[in-house]
Design a protein around this nucleic acid. Sequence first.
DNA 1: CATGAATGAGGCTTCATTCAT
DNA 2: GATGAATGAAGCCTCATTCAT
Lengths: 197, 197, 197, 197
Amino acid sequence: MTGKEKPDPPGRIKIMASFSRLMQEKDFHSITTAQIAKNADVTEGLIYKYFKDKKDLLYQVLNAHFQEFHEKIKIRMTQATSSIGKLDLIILASLEEYLENRLLSKILLLEVRNSQAFFNSGAYEMVTVYARTILKIIREGIASGEIAAHTDPYLLRKVIIGAIEHACLGEVIFGKPLDIKKTAAGISDIIFNGVKP
Amino acid sequence: MTGKEKPDPPGRIKIMASFSRLMQEKDFHSITTAQIAKNADVTEGLIYKYFKDKKDLLYQVLNAHFQEFHEKIKIRMTQATSSIGKLDLIILASLEEYLENRLLSKILLLEVRNSQAFFNSGAYEMVTVYARTILKIIREGIASGEIAAHTDPYLLRKVIIGAIEHACLGEVIFGKPLDIKKTAAGISDIIFNGVKP
Amino acid sequence: MTGKEKPDPPGRIKIMASFSRLMQEKDFHSITTAQIAKNADVTEGLIYKYFKDKKDLLYQVLNAHFQEFHEKIKIRMTQATSSIGKLDLIILASLEEYLENRLLSKILLLEVRNSQAFFNSGAYEMVTVYARTILKIIREGIASGEIAAHTDPYLLRKVIIGAIEHACLGEVIFGKPLDIKKTAAGISDIIFNGVKP
Amino acid sequence: MTGKEKPDPPGRIKIMASFSRLMQEKDFHSITTAQIAKNADVTEGLIYKYFKDKKDLLYQVLNAHFQEFHEKIKIRMTQATSSIGKLDLIILASLEEYLENRLLSKILLLEVRNSQAFFNSGAYEMVTVYARTILKIIREGIASGEIAAHTDPYLLRKVIIGAIEHACLGEVIFGKPLDIKKTAAGISDIIFNGVKP
DNA sequence: CATGAATGAGGCTTCATTCAT
DNA sequence: GATGAATGAAGCCTCATTCAT
């Protein structure tokens, strides 16, 4: 009983939806406030009633999408018991989400890196939550002996996230289809078993 | 015998140098032609004598830097005999180059991904040459038995490049220092030996 | 018998108070209806229930403050008998009021002059009442022989008001402190006795 | 022979002229960059090639006009020998200039006071030069015994400038004609001889 | 080989104001 | 008596780009 949280005004919703739609097609810089407004069937001015900035709009939308993403990841992870199992699941789920939720992945893979500001924004926090989750699992794996003791957890995380993101790049940029299951399994195999015969 | 290659006119050189300098500090979108010109001690108009447009300037500069980069990589690779040894060297050399040549890495990691146009540009060719080099080595490794036969070469390449790029991200964006040798060795270890104990 | 004057509704009062407060800090143009409303803990819409527009709000507030101002001046003037005594008092009282009532002086010295509209507004009437009071006293002084017969009353008024206002400018704009008594006495001395030895 | 100072580009000149013209009719805030450009038969963008800001444009124009003003004042002052004679001339010349050069007086009397920024701008320097000139003459007058020893020079300056400015206000705002010679003489008489009979 | 004056399109943002509830 | 969602007009400014000289 948190009390009735008054729903967002229609204008706000329409603006966020419009922006989400546009982000699917173009990059942030190429989207103009005029387009956002027109697409939302709203006046440009209204954007600034609900968002400080065009950038603020990006962050808010990103936030909403990421929230969902992280929620799903967490739920799935309960299905695994071993640490490596969990990481497997994260790799799979991340790939799935990245590809399913093109908007999110575009923002994460392409836009966001450009702007110092982003990393100082609250939006970046979310990303780190995701990253911390991975780190935690790695440490558990090391503690439990599943992962070799001498492994640098930060570096392993870098390899995992790097592999995931790079694997999606082609899809995101060129729309090349990707066999998610196979890719996830392949990444896991390489990272956990190594490529030596 | 290409004949005497007439040297670039001073204006052209100054413009490229100026742009390179600016790219070290800011992102492409934030650099204005006015700044480029001022920084080069040249008039804005001159830029358009030598470059079709601002993007063309980016590609040309990128090209110049990448050429160097790839040259170095190739030279180093001669120092290794085994395929895995070569990949080790590539990982190390790439990290080194990325971090040493901030301009190049910034373009590669941040700018370039944003622009569809880039991938259709000649500039992207260069990147693929690098990627193909890696792929070739992987295939040699599989053929020679150094790398497990069931390995998907494309995926392995993705993991390698993903790991390298992600490892550099923090440095590039935040300026966090990175122990190159240790990082390179760690990545190699994870990918080639796996993280299982 | 104007009957019971129904008290102003709370919203109206809050809005005027809010606007007064804001005028203390910023100039009219820099104050937005949004700020006024927020500061008054009221919605923007309500402003337009009680005031025709933003300018109307200014005039109404100015009016209220000026009324007070003029009231005080009139009361004080009863304490003097000679015309020059009265003018002395006006100079002193005006300085006092200007400095005490920063809002009023800011409006009078800075805002109001900018707007043709103001001078066509009812608000300007008030100012002229003040000016007429001064003129009347000057004429009385000339009639009674206290002031040299050849003095142009309009011009003398200009000198008096000009001196007062300019003397306050520094304080109003920069917040430079001002010794009121000394300043008033000095102005009186200069104007009434001249500066020749 | 300071060398040929290259003349201002036509665009710059047209913009300043256009702005000067517009300032004659409206106040700063009501003048839009669009109007300035149209009136100058130039594109809006060009304004920002030559001026940092709309405000910068104001200052530059003010500067040009004030320079002239001060030049004239200085020349005239050489015609008087006594300090009071010089002040007489300043009063007369200032009135003349204010009324002749409506643009300057408008800026000085109306616009400029509104903006804190102005007083921190280089433009304000000029005004203080004028003010300092007056102060210097007053002090000379006191030293030479022309002006009563007990006179506060700052205050006297305030009275003089205040009288001049206030005397012009009506003309500037309403276009009421003003007999300059008579007004100047009247002000001088009041201030130097006092109004007592 | 290079200049420098000028353009034009459009971007983001602000704000007073209205109106249904 | 008051709210709050929404408007629309316009403002300032930026920038890549062109072209005559």
